[in-house]
């Protein structure tokens, strides 16, 4: 691990008065010195702990209670045991609508983002400095564009009445004069959301993978080429294995992000409450708690989303970091 080597070395070398004497480790340092790093860490740990641990505990607590408007006013949540979970897990709504919306969408978005990001990274490697700067600039533009604005652009492009997609499809005769509302159908709704999320997410992935690509020694490619491997084979047999840690990191990050997508769904027509067919876990939790004041129910959905994310992350970490690869 790069981190371990560098940091381990620095600790040894920084010990005055005989910085390079390894025996220094055995001599106990004064308490003040040993505690100082923890003091530096204290503020962030306290801030994050207070603002993240408290909500986790609180949301778990609320998920076992009825906490609607009446209870908010009286200030006393009513304990209802597993009722909220029964309501969420019991019906077919979760299994047939919300969970597929969350999981299938995330799967497509993650794969799409990583494939496109990789292609753009490979493209960046092949072009001259000027073109590369232009591509990076346009990618960063897409990345920095607020999700709010980005979503409106895509909604506008697919507008059922005057959107450019309708005009184009009608122009080539693929769509009848009656048009089509892309936002009422679950599948087309999420196709647009996927496009939007990929658009927003690929720059980060592309730049990260590009940075990783520069670390693959050119000699390996040369050697493989002499052995007669074509570009496709070299990509799978050299680039991918060498880049496994980088791919692991971007996959985990994209998965976490795409499971939590909120604005991109919420801001599309119907996503803010009027079309329950298109909710994902995050939006459902939001609508139940904020729109309908059913805080207990919303909390149980939030707990569910957290658990799903936790399970997926653990499975991922197991599969991807077989040997302790994260540094």
């Amino acid at each position: 691990m790069a981190g371990t080597t560098v940091s381990g070395g620095s600790r040894a070398t920084l010990e005055p008065p005989e910085p390079r004497d390894p025996s220094l480790h055995s001599r106990p340092r004064p308490l003040r010195v040993r505690l100082r790093p923890w003091l530096l860490l204290a503020a962030p740990l306290v801030v994050i702990g207070a603002l993240l641990i408290y909500p986790i505990v609180r949301v778990a607590y609320l998920s076992f209670h009825r906490y609607g408007l009446k209870e908010v006013i009286s200030g006393h949540p009513v304990f209802t045991g597993l009722d909220n979970y029964r309501e969420v897990l019991g019906g077919s709504y979760l299994w047939k609508t919300v969970l597929p919306n969350t999981v299938v969408f995330a799967a497509f978005a993650v794969v799409g983002t990583i494939v496109l990001g990789t292609l753009v990274a490979l493209l960046l490697q092949r072009v001259g400095p000027a073109v590369r700067a232009a591509i990076i600039a346009s990618a960063l533009l897409a990345w920095a564009l607020p999700a709010v604005t980005g979503t409106y652009v895509w909604v506008w492009i697919f507008d059922p009445d005057s959107g450019v997609v309708r005009k184009m499809l009608q122009g080539v005769g693929l769509l009848g004069p009656e048009g089509f509302n892309w936002f009422t159908e679950r599948l087309s709704f999420y196709a647009i959301a996927t496009l939007n999320v990929i658009h927003h997410g690929y720059p980060f992935i592309a730049i990260t993978i590009f940075a990783g690509l520069t670390t693959v020694p050119a000699e390996l490619h040369e050697a493989a080429k002499i052995d007669g491997a074509n570009a496709w084979q070299r990509f799978w047999q050299i680039t991918v294995p060498m880049m496994r840690p980088v791919f692991a990191v971007v996959t985990i990050l994209s998965t976490i992000w795409d499971f939590k997508v909120f604005a991109q769904v919420y801001l599309m027509p119907g996503g803010s409450g009027s079309n329950p067919d298109v909710f994902n876990l995050g939006v459902w939790s939001y609508v139940e708690s904020i729109n309908r004041n059913q805080y207990g129910l919303g909390a149980s959905i939030a707990v569910l989303l957290t658990l799903v994310l936790l399970v997926i992350t653990v499975v991922y970490l197991r599969a991807l970091f077989r040997e302790d690869e994260i540094s």
Binding site: L52, V59, I256, K260, A299, A302
Partner: peptide, 17 residues
Amino acid sequence: STKMLPMVAALLPIYLF
């Protein structure tokens, strides 16, 4: 690991508090 907590889950307690 704090990045794994969905914002929606953190939102509710913070809002109520």
